[in-house]
Design a protein around this nucleic acid. Sequence first.
DNA 1: CGCTTTATTGACGGACCTCAATTTGGGTGG
DNA 2: CCACCCAAATTGAGGTCCGTCAATAAAGCG
Lengths: 238, 238
Amino acid sequence: MDATPQNKVLSRLDESLLTHLPPFSRLDRQQIRAILDQATSRRYNAGVSIFDEGAPADRFFMLLDGYVRVVRITPTGEQVTALHIPAGQLLGMAKVLGRVTYPATAITATESIVLSWPMRLWDSFIQDYDGFATETYKTLGHRVGEMNTRIVELATQQVEQRVANAILRLISQTGRKVPGGIEIDFPITRQDLSELTATTLHTVSRLLSAWEKRGLVASKRKRITVTDPHALVVLSQG
Amino acid sequence: MDATPQNKVLSRLDESLLTHLPPFSRLDRQQIRAILDQATSRRYNAGVSIFDEGAPADRFFMLLDGYVRVVRITPTGEQVTALHIPAGQLLGMAKVLGRVTYPATAITATESIVLSWPMRLWDSFIQDYDGFATETYKTLGHRVGEMNTRIVELATQQVEQRVANAILRLISQTGRKVPGGIEIDFPITRQDLSELTATTLHTVSRLLSAWEKRGLVASKRKRITVTDPHALVVLSQG
DNA sequence: CGCTTTATTGACGGACCTCAATTTGGGTGG
DNA sequence: CCACCCAAATTGAGGTCCGTCAATAAAGCG
């Protein structure tokens, strides 16, 4: 954690940080102030867990800045990435699903800034804040849709298509324009990609090498830039 | 549909049909009567769709009797089964997810009896009926958990383990004791199983044949009986 | 008793995983 | 600033799981 005391950090949090975020967009300044006053703010380094699968779900979170991977760990220790969550979304909403423990582990992919509240405030947020419930359910619906898509992909597509789709999804969620293409704007290893697509880092490496030769992507260590998105889309369709 | 007029059928629906079902279990007779009076009852033959992916979500449903497969259809026409839903559960709850269309297609696996209500009643059900919301979210949470499990399975397990797991899940959800073992109590083809486990009917057939030789299962056309559940559990762990 | 749906089984090939050996790049400490 | 070290990435060889193609067989159903 930052050496700066939390309340200091908090007092600097401007209401405008939340006003444009969907779950809070219909609230007035005063309501948002109240929400911020109850929040704890924290900075996480890259690669650390925010909460762990199976742990008591005692807080819920809003990712203000950074990226988070939601992963499950198998009995044999393999990691499977279920979702990527970009800044501006809620996470750890176990209560929505009628759960008392977190269903998966959340790991920061970059340095991240996260607000959190005790789970006991959840019900009052839902009741008191107009639009909070609706937007929460929309987020949830979106994630269910994503999970569904993943299942269909895993069930029907070849590795090459899955990797192409994963990269396309990442640049659509978190892409950043750079000279020569669009870059995934957080560090991602071949290993990470392989956990996203249910394959091995070797296969991902081979695919990226082949694509690079054909001019579809350019990649450095932990960095991937798509230079020909259209061709990648074509590939992803099989 | 049955030739009997709907209201005739409805009038015969006893309150006791709903009282033991989680979403309604905290309600009194009068409330349940009101709910039933707004419901439409319908019988479906096996293998027909209750609602289709992408269609406007204008009704939500309660499966009173039978089994339903929730499937998605790929651009190339392949079917992927996302979930199996047993009697006593709600389905088509698009509104929970903030959606206006159904996210998947629901197909009856057996002859089924289904109640349904116009989606515009959803919000009032949530508000007026104690426990309805909670139980709905619990159901949803359970399904999200199942989807998660499927993703992990697809990502990490071999076909043999996936098929074993699928069968174990089916008998735990819908198993019926018969002389010599536990039977999946609705008709299920090799094709159905292959759509559940993301493989081909050929591979499923080979696996079942091998298991039958080893005395783990017994199967006839559209019928599968597990004769040695423990051994199947061992197999499913790899 | 034909006809359709469902299931079985064999042969073959290919996609992708496993094992293994290097290479590259970037950070760090002297 | 250079040498060192470790994480990340590359690439080859070989094997295997499982899908594809193909041909029958068995089971219901009218």
